[in-house]
């Protein structure tokens, strides 16, 4: 199933966590580092509305971890966040469906300090899901 070009605010997005700095097991929370965009200012996420948890993990394994250039990382978990939170921060969700359900969070401000603050706010609003 493809994402619509305009992702609904109520839709859940998954940001897959590939580094231990992306989350805090102690606080059971997502850390800001998970939402810091790369230099391209396109933060990779997947739309997961209507999927079972098993299917969400499958996307992480197949489309994130297996698609990486070696050495591949471990899939620690994912941050579950509503698109509405992204829109609240004046960011946008650019669905390219390549691979299916893939999108980038775009529209990041030029100032890094502002981007870091947004990353903190997104992380604070996200729910941590860890691999059991």
């Amino acid at each position: 199933m493809k994402l619509r070009s305009k992702v609904s605010p109520s839709e859940s997005l998954a940001r897959y966590l590939t580094h231990k700095n992306h989350y805090s097991p102690v606080h059971n929370s997502v850390r800001p580092a998970a939402f810091q965009p790369p230099s391209t200012l396109r933060l990779s996420v997947f739309g997961i509305a209507g999927l079972t948890l098993k299917e969400v993990w499958e996307i992480g394994d197949v489309d994130v971890i297996n698609a990486m250039h070696p050495p591949r990382k471990n899939l620690h978990g994912f941050a579950d966040i509503k698109a509405a939170v992204v829109y609240e921060k004046s960011l946008d969700v650019d669905a390219d469906n390549n691979p299916p359900r893939h999108a980038d969070i775009v529209g990041w401000p030029e100032e890094k300090s502002e981007r870091n603050l947004i990353a903190q706010e997104l992380a604070a609003r996200a729910t941590l899901r860890l691999q059991s």
């Binding site: 606080h27 929370s29 997502v30 800001p32 100032e111 890094k112 300090s113 502002e114 870091n116 603050l117 990353a119 903190q120 706010e121 992380a123 604070a124």
Partner: peptide, 29 residues
């Protein structure tokens, strides 16, 4: 915690790029 966090990044040109969330309050610069 998620809403009680402060970070400082060591940027280029000796910049200290900071951002913080303190409950409902926030800062960056």
């Amino acid at each position: 915690g998620p809403r009680q966090v402060f970070s400082v990044s060591m940027g280029s040109n000796n910049e200290l790029v900071y951002a913080g969330l303190f409950g409902a309050n926030k800062t960056h610069g």
